[in-house]
Write a protein that binds this DNA or RNA. Structure first.
Length: 248
DNA sequence: ATTACTACCTGACAGC
DNA sequence: TGCTGTCAGGTAGTAA
């Protein structure tokens, strides 16, 4: 989500007011409804980038390797292209997981993690028996948290990823709420995390990967206690945590 | 409601 | 060099 927010922030001033003169897409990359229309705004909804037009929204989901680049260079992985009245918007995606869809409404998802109140946040956990990490990654529950930020938030809150979500005390929920907001806010301020090839709308890499405390630090000493960071798999996702600081 | 697993794609990297 | 296996900012679909 910090990466998507950064892309939106870099693209909004360049795209707002621009008219799409022509566009090419492909399978799972629907671009036609936007041709001839003017971009009124660019916003983020969870991990979706929304280009606003008079008749609807073009929703872009970058998934793992998608990139939206203003006036970027074409590559063998350029999958879609928008010719604007000023400049060009390229959509690159090595793995082809990303999607571009046309819609008149936002996808049904949970509240934004930076907008939800503590009461609203705490209510989401009631009677849930799923594992904590699995719940946090579920976009129907909260929209925006991804693998990096769940691991980083759980570390800061000193919570084990396999905890049962519905069994957390109020004190632990408060720690998680605060940690989640801090991690996301700091990551956005640093332009997101460039673990491999993420770049913003201007082709700039993020800086937050320098501040990761557990994500992809398997075997390295915990920044808090020195115990080696462990990696396990939770819900098919690599999961990094300190076994001493984060007890079940 | 929840878990578990598969698919979708391509590339980087480690080990043999 | 080349092969094999593992890993990767995510989500959808299916079956149990």
């Amino acid at each position: 989500m910090p990466e998507v927010e950064t892309v939106v922030r870099t693209l909004r001033p360049r795209l707002a007011g621009r008219t799409i003169l022509a566009a090419t897409g492909g399978p799972k990359l629907t671009v036609e409804p936007a041709v001839g229309q003017t971009i009124r705004d660019v916003t983020r909804h969870g991990k979706y980038i929304a280009l606003h037009f008079d008749t609807g929204l073009l929703l872009v989901h970058l998934r793992m390797t998608g990139k939206l680049l203003y006036d970027g260079a074409r590559t063998p992985y350029t999958r879609a292209e928008f010719v604007l009245d000023q400049g060009t918007l390229l959509y690159d995606d090595i793995r082809r997981f990303g999607r571009i869809t046309w819609s008149t409404e936002y996808p049904a998802q949970g509240p934004d993690p930076l907008e939800v109140s503590f009461a609203g946040f705490a209510a989401l956990f009631q009677r849930r028996r799923v594992r904590l990490k699995t719940l946090l990654l579920d976009q129907r529950f909260l929209r925006g948290l991804g693998n990096i930020y769940v691991d980083e938030a759980l570390f800061r809150a000193r919570l084990h990823p396999l905890s049962v979500a519905g069994s957390l005390s109020r004190a632990k929920l408060e720690r998680l709420y605060t940690a989640m907001r801090e991690v996301l806010t700091e990551a956005i301020a640093q332009g997101g995390s460039s673990v491999s090839d993420y770049v913003d709308g201007n082709g700039e890499r993020g800086r937050f990967q320098r501040f990761h405390r557990v994500y992809r630090r398997t075997g390295e000493p915990c920044v808090s206690c020195g115990t080696p960071v462990e990696r396990i798999v939770v819900g098919q996702r690599g999961t990094h945590f300190c076994p001493r600081c984060q007890r079940a």
